[in-house]
Every structure is written in C-alpha cells, then in structure tokens.
C-alpha cells in the first residue's frame, strides 16, 4: 500500500517538474537570446546557450534606446501608484470599517461596484476625459486614473475589522483624535497587509500596458512595456535586442517577488476568496 502510494507520488512529481520546465522555458530563451549576436539568434537550430556571448544587445537598449530613462519612468508610475493607493485605500477602508455616516453601506457597495466594470470597456471615454484635462502624454495622466482601487479599499476594510476595536477606543478615552488613532495605532498594526498590497500594486503598475500605450505619445515618456512594444518596430527581427529589453522589464518584479513571496501570495489569496 505505502509502496504503491510512493510510486504515484513520484509520477506526480515528475509531471510537476515537467510542467515547471515548460513554465520556465520562455525565461531561459529570453535570457540566452539577449546575450547572442544577430547572426546567432537566427541560427538554425537555435543554440541552447550562447556560443559567443555579447553585451551588445544591452548596449543597444540602454544607449541607443534609452531604456534607462524608460526604467525610471516605469518605476515612477509604479511607485506613485503604490503611495497613492496605499494612502487612499487604507483611509477609505478605515472609514468603512469604523466610522459612522448616513448610507455608509450603500456608498461602500457603489465603490465596490466598479469591480464589475472592466477598464477596457470605458477606455475611450477615459482617454477623452484625460484629453479634456490636458493630461495626455504625461505620466501623471497615466497615474491619475489608476489611483482608485476598490479591491484595495475592500482589502483594508476587512483587515481593519479584524483588529481589536478596544485598542482604538482606549485611545479615544485618552483624548486621541481619529486622525492620530489611524496613523499611530491602526496603520502600525497593518504593516503586513500594506506590504502585500503595496507589492501587488507595484507589480501591477510596472506591467501596465494598454492604458499607458494610449496616453503616452512621445518617446521620452514611455514606460518599459511601451518601449518594448516599440522595439518591435525599430529593431524588427533583432531578437537579441528585443530580448535584452524584455529582460530589463522582467527582472525587477521577479526579484521583488522572490524576496517577498509570502507577502505577495497572501495578498492574492486574500483578494481571491473573501
């Protein structure tokens, strides 16, 4: 019985390793092609490791294509989104968890209802609104319409409800204002959730594509995903340069993810089924 089980365990393990291999394969080729010369990327059959590794592709994307600037733009968008979403979602989440207001439940449901409205559906009027605000072709324009997150408000509200309210009420007795309670007691107790949520937002902002594609028109404003899409036009068929660009865009979120895996997964699992 136990021997039979271990055989099936091994079969499962082999299948899992095979699957993980397929999941990983694109990353492998992304990295090795980025170190190959144009001749080598066009070799048939493709090489599994570069025979004459070169840094030329990275020189191309960073010197000729300004990927340094695009990385900064991307980090700016992602970073600003983290700060704004953490700030505004936590505050609104606290209001819905602890503060009384007429029709509070209905207001909460109206906020949550945007989760039922995919942003692509309203992408054209969003663009026209931004145009009326004269924010087309600005990074602030990209950020402005991405700040509101119903998921974030929901996440923080659920978390605040799980905190012991007696702690906050003791502070009221001691004469603290709601503002002080929120910043001095509640937020310090929310470091884990802020870490998880902030990480999700950063990676979301780093990888945003359709929205900045529409909003940003001039080359110096591009974020990495946009610059990558444009590489296709400029370096058509130059797989080495394209893959070097892809590596630049892919590495920072992967490092963050590996460093803070638990935190990231907690954020997703929470939003997933509550």
């Amino acid at each position: 019985m136990s021997r039979k089980r271990s055989v099936s365990d091994i079969v499962v393990l082999i299948l899992l390793i095979f699957g993980a291999f397929i999941m990983f394969m694109p990353y492998w080729f992304m990295v090795i092609l980025s170190f190959e010369t144009p001749e080598e990327t066009a070799s048939v059959p493709p090489h599994l490791i570069p025979h004459n590794p070169t840094m030329e592709n990275y020189r191309k994307v960073f010197i000729d294509m300004n990927f340094g600037l695009y990385s900064l733009n991307t980090a700016f968008v992602a970073g600003a989104l983290v700060v704004a979403q953490v700030l505004f979602c936590s505050m609104a989440g606290y209001a819905f968890a602890r503060l009384a207001f007429p029709f509070r439940r209905i207001i909460f449901l109206i906020f949550l209802s945007v989760m039922m409205l995919p942003t692509v559906v309203i992408i054209i009027p969003r663009y026209l609104l931004l145009k009326n605000l004269h924010l087309i072709n600005t990074l602030s324009g990209v950020i402005l319409l991405e700040i509101f997150s119903a998921f974030g408000i929901f996440l923080y509200r659920q978390h605040f409800l799980s905190l012991p309210i007696e702690l906050e009420e003791a502070a009221v007795v001691d004469g603290a204002s709601v503002w002080q309670i929120f910043w001095k007691i509640v937020m310090p107790l929310s470091k884990n959730i802020t870490m998880s949520f902030g990480l999700l937002v950063f990676i979301y902002g780093w990888n945003l594509f359709l929205w900045p594609l529409i909003v940003l028109t001039s080359p110096e404003k591009r974020t990495l995903p946009i610059a990558l899409a444009m590489l296709q036009g400029r370096y058509f068929g130059d797989w080495g340069a394209m893959m070097a660009g892809a590596v630049v865009a892919a590495v920072p979120p992967i490092i963050l993810f590996i460093l803070a895996q638990k935190s990231f997964i907690r954020g997703i699992a929470f939003g997933g089924f509550k």
Partner: peptide, 25 residues
C-alpha cells in the same frame, strides 16, 4: 517557477513566445 508568469510583463513574455513560435528560428 509556476508563479513567475504572473509577475512578468505580458509584453516581455509575448515577445519571447513570438520567437518560440517563429516559423524559421
């Protein structure tokens, strides 16, 4: 390894897959 695609730019992975599917190379 299974979680990596979730954090990677869809544009970066689309480019690699475009190469993987390339008729000649």
């Amino acid at each position: 390894l299974y979680f990596l695609p979730m954090v990677t730019s869809s544009i970066a992975v689309s480019l690699v897959w475009k190469w993987i599917f390339h008729r000649d190379y």
